[in-house]
Design a protein around this nucleic acid. Structure first.
Lengths: 225, 225
DNA sequence: CCAGCGATGTCACGGCTGTGTAACGGCCGG
DNA sequence: CCGGCCGTTACACAGCCGTGACATCGCTGG
């Protein structure tokens, strides 16, 4: 996977550092998505697909270590923490929270790039996509295993149903419109009018419980969580 | 893996640092084997089974970075480098050589232990390093011996079947697509359409029990666990 | 409050793709 | 020379997918 440029999620509140770091990473062969605080960081993370997360420790709204823990709940992608001071306590807490590396500011460009490549190399060695178990109210979705459980009981899903459920589970509580689902589950680009999504949502509902997928009229569907 | 104490290979020339570090690691729950220079380090590494290597950068006979590269030739265990000075150049070279982390001396005890646990946790997520017996629901697979047992009873496997089963067992519960299996078991790069995998999966199923390998239509196969 | 319309739920059906399975020939090692 | 493992091919079939038709729901404007 990701034969192209690795996709980095950079969460940093200092605008100057954010911009220079983003530029620096871009020149070193990474694609960068930036967020200014912890909350938008987790939102961005859930919205997109990233290969590695680069988080400042001191962040408004949600600090970097909590953010790392949140990401770890649903993903196994490598996480690198950034900190102004190299406090031992920070480091231990960060690593225990699930971070994979720790870089002290101010950092050297090539060093940062090398560390990112190092964690990516390690993560990619046994790919599997980097995702863990997604949970939503008694529902467990295993993206790597293409399987799901309701209240602990395994549910038999077809491939399309599984892919649809995984896509919904990646965005619990967020309304997914039909165009996006078509694109991500069926690789369609623009089918103006099709009942494909509707039908498969019904089939999914019949298997995992009708109330778990909510219809938002005129917008799409969302998985309750 | 390694439910017991992780086994650390420590290579450090300074006797005082070597002893205090070894003691420190032991109190933090690691088993330690020490070597005083690069040459004995690589000898010790080849002689024993280790979960992680902790290498000083400045070493007599063979320096730490070369040692890391030598280890990487035959093993995927995590490697942590130790250095007296945090020179950026060293760091980049070390990471590019295959090291997984980098700790500057003098280091803090808990920090070092936390970093070691972090790289071990990452390495342990999938197989890698000290690969022993893989288990999955009454099925035992021994990668080193290329053999398997079902409910304690040995099963005769051909080499291809064994390699396929090992690859599946390394990723229990994870769907493996045909392309990946072809690449890892048969060293194929891109055979667009072949039934090779299917046929061998059938043969495997006949030997270890049909229900143990699950078909995920349009995606691949997975070993249940 | 009602009528109308667009959006969604539900059902049934047929094509088709992907997979199971058996058989075969070649190659290698003993 | 022979046994058996491997890779290929052919064929059948299960069942999934996608489509269309029709029922229903829920806004919204009059």
């Amino acid at each position: 996977m990701t034969a192209d440029r690795p996709h980095v999620l950079l969460v940093e509140d200092d605008a100057a550092i954010r911009e220079t770091t983003a530029l620096l990473l871009q020149t070193h062969g990474f694609d960068v998505c930036v967020s200014a605080d912890g909350q938008t960081g987790i939102d961005d993370f859930r919205a997109g697909r990233f290969d590695v997360a680069l988080l400042d420790v001191m962040l408004p709204r949600i600090d970097g270590i909590s953010l790392a823990r949140l990401i770890r709940e649903t993903s196994a992608i490598p996480i690198v923490l950034l900190s102004a001071r190299s406090e031992p306590f920070d480091m231990v807490a960060g690593l225990e929270a699930g971070a994979d590396d720790y870089v002290a500011k101010p950092f050297d460009g090539p060093v940062l790039a090398a560390r990112l490549r190092a964690v990516l190399r390690r993560a990619g060695r046994h790919d599997a996509g980097g995702e863990r178990l997604l949970r939503a109210d008694g529902l467990e979705v295993d993206p790597a295993g293409m399987s799901a459980r309701v209240g602990g009981e395994p549910v038999a899903l077809t491939t399309t149903e599984a892919r649809l459920l995984i896509e919904l589970a990646r965005n619990v509580g967020i309304v997914m419109n039909r165009a996006t689902l078509l694109e991500r589950v069926w690789d369609y680009r623009w089918d103006g009018d099709t009942r494909l999504v509707d039908v498969h949502v019904q089939r999914l509902r019949a298997k995992i419980g009708r109330e778990r997928i909510e219809t938002v009229r005129g917008a799409g569907y969302k998985l309750v969580g």
